[in-house]
Write a protein that binds this DNA or RNA. Structure first.
Length: 424
RNA sequence: AGAGGAGUGGCAGAGUGGUCGAAUGCACUGGUCUUGAAAACCAGCGUGCCGCAAGGUACCGGGGGUUCGAAUCCCUCCUCCUCUGCCA
């Protein structure tokens, strides 16, 4: 969430920035927040006074008891009890205010940075880079959902039977190609200095709040109600939450992690005819990179992360483009996001395969992820993450773009990992 | 899962009703000394909130309670350890 002090001190610029993401109610919301915060301050001030008085009375009573002046002590006890009652009321009022304040702050998304293009819909995203040329497909080229049947490498019906829609089985060379990609992506990231982690794939409620999936995207996660855990929608959640409630030594920065996990998304309301085959699943595999950065360096890191992801796509020989997401299309918690889209030749459309974002202090503020600066003041870190990469759509693009009469050609960089160079 | 034990500052570890935000040691930071380093010595050294500041207030796993007063007593949840059971 946004920092309260920032909202107070830069009210106009915050409102203006929020307008860029078409966030309607900013002006009113911020007015209520400031009002509540004022209440909070005065209430706490009063409560502190009362407590201060009660504390000193307690000390007096202690001294009187010690010297045997019991009657004197009992007289003061009544006064102390009255103060205690008063403080109880004030404390209750205070926690009500604090809770309300928190709920309001949760409603405000991150402010887009100045480099984010203005715009309301995905059509307004700015294409900032394109790479590669459209592959020329033969006459009989088909989309990946036909190819996977032809070569029997992914089985949706089997998934329907065993689980439900959106939980496919990968089989034979399909499964091995998946495994190859995971290993390739992990190895590449490790080479770039990312420390590999294998996080849990369920998280608790605190972690959900920490990175901002809760309360905003409540309905999008699978909820294990018995334990009140959630299946992760992305490795970002457990990995970033490693640093919840942590004050890091600035010499540790930047912190860089890579992790491979399955990801689970209910995708409530986003199912339709346009999402066939591998384009949208309830469970899919993804390798994720995460950084915790010094605020001064986070935008350089964002650039580096984009360049890294682009490098992966180039090594895989895929045509892609980079979008600078416009304000209206930006995720709730992000200050800036670059999407990488791969061209899927048989479907003749662009598929998002990576999303690289800088959250600035938005997540760190919720996480209480801080560092001590040169003046020994605690400051919020910046957090970033990006897919590197999401597997199903990469697979879809590889299948479609590399299809030939003889079969599907495996990208050269993956051959050492797959042990075969053709699916046929 | 059952029985027993335990959770205190970065770590180790005192503290079992009052003056304790908390001894001590280690680690860390600054300084003195030194050609430099080590050692030694001196000083500093948790976090949030309110306040220009002085200062106030809260926090000893989380939440609740008893008491004028709780790290200390009670309840509850969580976590860890030991034993028994079960199981990849």
């Amino acid at each position: 969430m946004l920092e309260l002090n920032r909202i107070r001190n830069n009210r106009e610029s915050v409102v203006k920035a929020l307008e860029k993401r078409r966030f309607a109610d900013a002006q009113n919301l911020i007015a209520s927040i400031i009002q509540l915060d004022d209440d909070r301050k005065t209430t706490q001030g009063k409560n502190d006074e009362v407590l201060s008085e009660a504390n000193s009375l307690s000390k007096e009573i202690g001294a009187l008891m010690k010297s045997g002046q019991k009657d004197e002590a009992n007289k003061i006890k009544d006064k102390s009890a009255a103060l205690k009652a008063e403080s109880k009321d004030l404390s209750e009022k205070l926690s009500t205010i604090e809770e309300e304040l928190k709920q309001l702050l949760y409603k405000i998304p991150n402010t887009p940075n100045s480099d984010v293009p203005d715009g309301a819909t995905p059509d307004d995203n700015a294409v900032v880079y394109e790479h590669g040329i459209s592959p020329k497909l033969g006459a009989g080229a088909v989309p990946h959902w036909e190819l996977i049947k032809k070569y029997d490498i992914i089985d949706f019906e089997l998934g329907n039977k065993v689980t439900g829609a959106g939980f496919p089985f990968y089989k034979g060379k399909g499964a091995r190609l998946q495994r190859a990609m995971v290993n390739f992506f992990l190895d590449e990231a490790v080479k770039m200095g990312y420390v590999e982690v294998q996080p849990p794939i369920m998280i608790n409620e605190d972690s959900g709040y920490g990175t901002g999936q809760l309360p905003d995207k409540d309905g999008q996660m699978y909820h294990i109600t018995q334990e009140n855990y959630f299946l992760i929608p992305t490795a970002e959640v457990p990995i970033t939450n490693m640093y919840r409630d942590v004050i890091v030594d600035p010499r540790q920065l930047p912190i860089k992690h890579v992790g491979f996990t399955p990801c689970f998304r209910r995708e409530a309301g986003s199912w339709g005819a346009h999402v066939r085959g591998l384009n949208r699943l309830h469970q899919f595999d993804k390798v994720e990179i995460v950084q915790v950065q010094h605020p001064d360096n986070s935008y350089d890191a964002l650039k580096d992360m984009c360049a890294y992801v682009q490098g992966l796509l180039e090594k895989l020989g895929l045509q892609y483009r980079v979008l600078n997401l416009c304000g209206g299309d930006l995720g709730f918690t992000a200050a800036q996001t670059f999407d990488m889209e791969v061209y899927s030749a048989a479907q003749e459309k662009w598929l998002e395969v990576s999303s690289v974002s800088n959250f600035e202090t938005y997540q760190a503020n919720r996480l209480k992820l801080r560092f001590k600066d040169e003046n020994k003041k605690t400051q919020l870190c910046h957090t970033l993450n990006g897919s590197a990469l999401a597997l199903p759509r990469i697979l879809a693009a590889i299948l479609e773009n590399n299809q030939t009469e003889e079969g599907i050609k495996i990208p050269e960089v993956l051959v050492p990992y797959t042990g075969f160079d053709m699916i046929n």
